[in-house]
Nucleic acid binder design. Structure first.
Length: 831
RNA sequence: GCCCCGAUAUCCCAAUCGGCAGAGGAAAAUGACUCAAACUCAUUCAAGUGUGGGUUCGAAUCCCACUCGGGGCACCA
């Protein structure tokens, strides 16, 4: 620049903290971001939800990233004049609060609500366009009451039920876990190896929805990351096959197994039952009892990680009994082994060692016969040790001989069907969702256990079942049963059915129940006739854009999808999928790893904000790259962001000082006007496809163009400079709301810049009078022509061939072909 | 072991349909301002797109194989 001498505005830098205080107070007073519930409001609606926060301490860099990204999307909606619902809430039940309470000798509510206030304060400072009137906390009785209400609706439909079985138990947290919460044999939360226990627990019957969860992914193909859909598909794990009933010697009832390869039935040479299934116990003959009991005890001691290791040698014991192959009457020894899972299929398998690697490994360990029934052209599995699992020609299989795999499967299913010993069927890897937790800080399960009446639901009008408030500190220490069991006055109640003495269920619900339906609560906060007002939920829902981390690819997102379908079936929601579009933001990493307290590589958000201001931190998050990418804090520079914001600010200040709002830009400098409209066009396109980093780059270009126009062009008073500066304020408001508001005010405007100010680019200013056309000869650029954008291919070809430079390179070679891509390129192909 | 994603300048990242590899930023260098430094401003700088093939008039972009990095799944019969 060459700072304009004597003009104080020219070198003015903004005071981030002062702007934050000033505009925050104003937004709080004027609440510009409240969604409009007026039925007459027919603007297009936009429902933008950021995954709600868990209140552990203050907001950190990870939060800063999600909310910066979510806010760009929400604010873009506001700018485009949509009726935006952008709410906030806290996922405030859960273990960390309880552990803190045990440590500090307090009630979990103290820690929870103190942290929520801290986060809410930071959140307000962060300048997110939030509708605060809809704020919710899942630990409020007003909220969890509806978890209980929904539980009872599930219970009535048989979708909530209690069963005894082997469950995942975390020895550290002293509670059971759902399948989804066990990651590679470790507790998802504390990474302790999970063990199995036999307990009577509550489940939600998500398996009943397995097929719909799979099918409805078609609706999500455009709006969800493919990766997440793949993970869910794998998790649900549909497999198609057949159930086949095997007679058991010395037992009246046959045992059914599931197989995906019924075509290999003639190759079954032995039979395996899951060692930990009751069936194994039952089938074991007295002579083999001792060996079996010893084996079963050994299996019970194994952790999940050990048990699931594929490196492990196969183990098992013979049970002394035989099964009978329904197609050829062959006797097959029955073994118990731990490579067969008790809770998948029927807990028993027919072993076909030639065509299943696990069975082959087992057969080789225990010297059991291997019979090839599908000739794939590969070496014999018995000798090679490698099972052949591909397609081939059936052999040694009676009526199936000569058929291919698919035909053989169809044929054998037909045969089994005629005999009544088998049928085609589908199995899923997905298990029912175990929701009981033996912990305090969650939603009490609204069931009363009566010695006479059994499981009796708490009547709706007695909800909520509120947590007792006299348990705190050491009372909550994990002891393997729920701390609630110790609250005698709370536990002992009259049975709602018979009036006799009864006891409350003392478990609480998995907190993923809380987060499975919260978006709908946002639509009608405070509603007291149900969890939400269906009319409102149907008006706003489904969520147009959901923003959150990939760590919930299966857990939360699968549960929320399941809940939405159940709510649909209950007639409470019109739609069947909760989130139309999903954006998984990356992580903020430092030193190669995700920032975390335990690793000590965290960068404190508050410190960064104190140093550079909210706008610069937000801009840093957005500008670092595409939103899905991780941000390595070593690669980014909030200082550089601040530098740019100051440049932008000065442009707005100088334009504001030099002209009045409402100046007609038509009289302004044409080159700058074109740059402005080009920028608007490009920024709009980039925001639409969620390339926010590119949008910022385009705003930077516009600021540079405006700077040049002021310094060495038509000057600050030119109407085009005002138009550019105003556009900067509007577009920048998505990312840096404080500077944008202040700039807008300095440009002479009253009222917020954030709402309804996005003007489309003027098409007349986007057209170019000429474009550069490259003329290639044999793929090398030899000339450039300035041509009209609407030039025809023929005209352009003629021009290119007439080019002296091109002709010089063509020389005496023959022109074989001329490729014309009007108006940008002509390639003259010569021999 | 299987599946998915990625690799562009010193670094972070751009590049409609396959059409001049570079928009933006960082770092660096030079200059202006300054007693000086910082700030600010201006200018400059660099890669032929991980490797090897293929398709094409033309490939960062499409296809195949490989290398490296990241992620997911992994006894589910």
């Amino acid at each position: 620049m060459t700072a304009v001498d004597g003009d104080p505005a020219a070198s003015e830098t903004y005071d981030a903290r002062a702007l934050q205080d000033k505009w925050r107070a104003r937004w709080q007073k004027e609440t510009p971001f409240v969604a409009d519930e007026d039925p007459a409001d027919d603007r297009p609606r936009s429902f933008v939800v950021d995954m709600f926060a868990y209140p552990s301490g203050d907001l950190h860099m990870g939060h800063a990233e999600v909310y910066a990204i979510g806010d760009v999307i929400a604010r873009y909606g506001f700018q485009r004049g949509r009726n935006v619902l952008h709410p906030i809430g806290w996922d405030s039940f859960g273990l960390p609060a309880e552990n803190a309470a045990i440590r500090n000798g307090t009630h979990p509510a103290e820690w929870t609500y103190a942290n929520i206030e801290t986060q809410a304060e930071s959140f307000r400072r962060y300048g997110v366009s939030t509708d605060w009137s809809r704020r919710l906390h899942t630990s409020d009785p007003d909220y969890y009451r509806w978890n209980q209400w929904l539980f009872l609706r599930f219970f009535e439909r048989g979708l909530a039920y209690r069963k005894n079985g082997l469950v995942n138990w975390c020895p550290k947290d002293q509670t059971v876990l759902a399948n989804e919460q066990v990651v590679q044999g470790l507790c998802e939360r504390c990474h302790t190896p999970v063990v199995r226990r036999s307990l009577n627990q509550w489940y939600f019957k998500i398996t009943e929805y397995a097929q719909r969860l799979l099918d409805d992914m078609d609706q999500l193909a455009d709006g969800w990351p493919a990766e997440v859909l793949t993970m869910q598909r794998n998790w649900i794990g549909r497999s198609q096959g057949a159930d086949v009933a095997f007679g058991i010697e010395g037992r009246d009832e046959p045992v059914t197994v599931f197989t995906t390869r019924p075509d290999t039935l003639f190759g079954a040479t032995f039979f395996v039952v899951a060692a930990d299934a009751p069936l194994a116990d039952e089938l074991c003959t007295p002579e083999h009892r001792a060996a079996f009991d010893a084996y079963r005890a050994q299996v019970a001691k194994l952790s999940d990680i050990d048990r699931q290791s594929t490196e492990r040698e196969k183990t098992g014991v013979f049970l002394g009994r035989h099964a009978v192959n329904p197609v050829n009457g062959e006797r097959m020894p029955i073994w118990a082994a731990d490579y067969v899972l008790a809770d998948y299929g029927h807990g028993a398998i027919m072993a076909v060692p030639a065509h299943d690697q696990r069975d082959l490994d087992f057969a080789r360990t225990f010297d059991l016969p291997v019979r090839t029934v599908v000739d794939t052209g590969e070496p014999e599995p018995a000798g090679s040790g490698t099972a052949t699992t591909g397609d081939g020609v059936l052999v040694n299989s009676g009526p199936l001989d000569g058929l291919g795999k698919d035909d053989a499967i169809a044929r054998i299913i037909a045969i089994l069907g005629e005999r009544g010993t088998g049928t085609g069927t589908v199995n899923y890897r997905l298990r029912d969702w175990l929701i009981s937790r033996q912990r305090f800080w969650g939603t009490p399960i609204p069931i009363i256990h009566c010695p006479d009446c059994g499981e009796v639901p708490v009547p709706d009008d007695q909800l909520p079942v509120v947590l007792p408030d006299d348990l705190a500190g050491a009372d909550l220490a994990p002891k393997g049963i729920s701390p609630l069991a110790a609250a005698e006055s709370w536990v002992n109640v009259d049975c709602p059915a018979c009036g006799g003495p009864a006891k409350r269920d003392t478990d609480t619900m998995d907190t993923f129940v809380d987060s499975s339906w919260y978006p709908w609560r946002y639509c009608s906060p405070g509603y007291d006739a149900g969890p939400f007002d269906s009319a409102k939920a149907n008006k706003w829902g489904p969520v147009d854009q959901y923003i959150g981390g990939k760590e919930h690819a299966i857990l939360h997102l699968l549960y929320a999808r399941f809940f939405t379908k159940v709510l649909h079936d209950l007639g409470m929601l019109d739609f069947t999928e909760p989130f139309t579009r999903l954006l998984n933001q990356g992580q903020v990493i430092n030193g190669g790893r995700a920032m975390s307290k335990s690793l000590g590589n965290g960068v404190d958000l508050g410190t960064e904000i104190d140093s550079y201001g909210v706008d610069a931190v937000r801009l840093t998050m957005i500008f670092s790259g595409p939103p899905e990418d991780d941000i390595d804090w070593a690669d980014v520079s909030p200082a550089a962001s601040l530098k740019f914001l100051n440049r932008a600010f000065r442009v707005m200040v100088e334009a504001g000082a030099a002209s009045e709002p409402g100046t007609d830009p038509a009289a302004g400098d044409l080159a700058l006007r074109k740059a402005t409209h080009q920028a608007i066009d490009k920024v709009t396109a980039a925001v639409e496809i969620q390339r926010f980093n590119v949008a910022v780059a385009r705003i930077m270009e516009l600021v540079t163009a405006a700077r040049k126009a002021i310094d060495s062009g038509p000057g600050a008073a030119d109407p085009a400079v005002r138009e550019a500066a105003e556009s900067v304020a509007v577009m920048l408001s998505l990312v840096a709301p404080y500077v944008a508001e202040e700039g807008w005010e300095r440009l002479g405007h009253t009222g917020t810049v954030a709402i309804g100010n996005w003007r489309p680019a003027d098409p007349a200013l986007l057209v170019r009078e000429s474009v550069t056309c490259v003329v290639q000869v044999a793929n090398k650029v030899r000339d450039k022509l300035e041509v009209a954008p609407d030039i025809t291919a023929d005209e352009l070809e003629a021009l290119a061939l007439a080019s002296a430079k091109a002709q010089a390179h063509i020389g005496d070679r023959t022109i074989r072909k001329v490729v014309v891509r009007a108006p940008k390129l002509v390639n003259i192909v010569v021999s």
